[in-house]
Simulated assay, not measured.
Amino acid sequence: MCKRICQIIKLKPTAEEEYKAIHAAVWPGVLAALERAHITDYSIHHYPPLQLLIATFKYTGSDYEGDMKKVGEDPETRRWWAVTDGMQESFVEGAQGSGKDIPWWTELQEVFRFDGKA
């Protein structure tokens, strides 16, 4: 079974160019950690009027929390977050960065889905 995830966070206006540039060439180790964690079809969209970043991905594993913990323990991912977190502002009160106890990105509730015909 596939779990779909949608998350949002605010992009600092001064970081827009740098954020897009770094995501044009995501570090291979970061992508490998996502793959090991059963994450597929990952995309991030930018909505400039509100400076929103909207991330969507599919999780195909069987232990979402455990796999996300492993991503957070990956050294290259932690280095990536040290760069990208500074470009973002969390909507979650008390959040201090990716991989911490309080989520950095806000996960959104799915209220509608249409899969169409197979």
Rank of each mutant, 00 (worst) to 15 (best):
D115Y: 13
D101F: 11
H38G: 08
D115V: 03
V30R: 02
A15H: 04
L11Q: 11
T60S: 09
E89H: 02
A21R: 14
K100H: 13
I39D: 11
L108G: 02
K20D: 07
R79L: 11
K20A: 12
Q51K: 07
K3G: 02
R113Y: 13
V111S: 14
E16G: 05
L11S: 06
I44T: 05
R78M: 04
W27E: 14
P48I: 10
F112Q: 15
M68R: 08
H45Y: 15
Y19T: 01
R78L: 06
A33T: 09
K70A: 13
E35M: 03
T84V: 15
V26F: 08
W80M: 12
K58P: 04
F91L: 14
Q7I: 09
E18H: 12
G94S: 11
K69Q: 07
D67F: 01
Q88C: 08
A55M: 13
A33M: 11
P13Q: 06
L53C: 11
R36G: 00
Q51C: 10
I54S: 00
P48Q: 02
A25Q: 15
P103N: 07
T106A: 12
Q109R: 12
R79H: 13
P103K: 02
T14H: 10
Q109H: 10
K117W: 08
T40Y: 10
G97C: 09
A21V: 06
L53Y: 02
W27I: 13
F57L: 15
W81F: 14
S98Y: 01
V92H: 02
W105D: 01
A24K: 08
A33Q: 05
S43D: 15
A21D: 11
W81K: 01
E18L: 14
R113L: 11
Q88T: 00
W80P: 06
T84H: 04
T60R: 05
H45I: 00
C2W: 14
V71W: 08
L34P: 00
C2D: 04
E16D: 10
H46I: 13
R113M: 09
T56W: 00
E17H: 06
K70F: 10
W105F: 09
Q51S: 15
T77D: 02
M68P: 02
Y42F: 15
P49W: 10
E93M: 06
K20F: 06
G29K: 00
Y59C: 00
R79I: 11
H45R: 07
R79W: 08
P13F: 05
S90M: 07
A95H: 13
Y19P: 03
Q88V: 05
L11D: 04
K58H: 15
L50V: 11
W105H: 01
A95M: 13
M87T: 07
E89W: 05
S90W: 06
K12V: 14
Q88N: 00
H23Y: 09
T56G: 04
M68L: 10
L52A: 13
R78P: 04
L108S: 03
S62Q: 14
T56N: 00
T77Y: 03
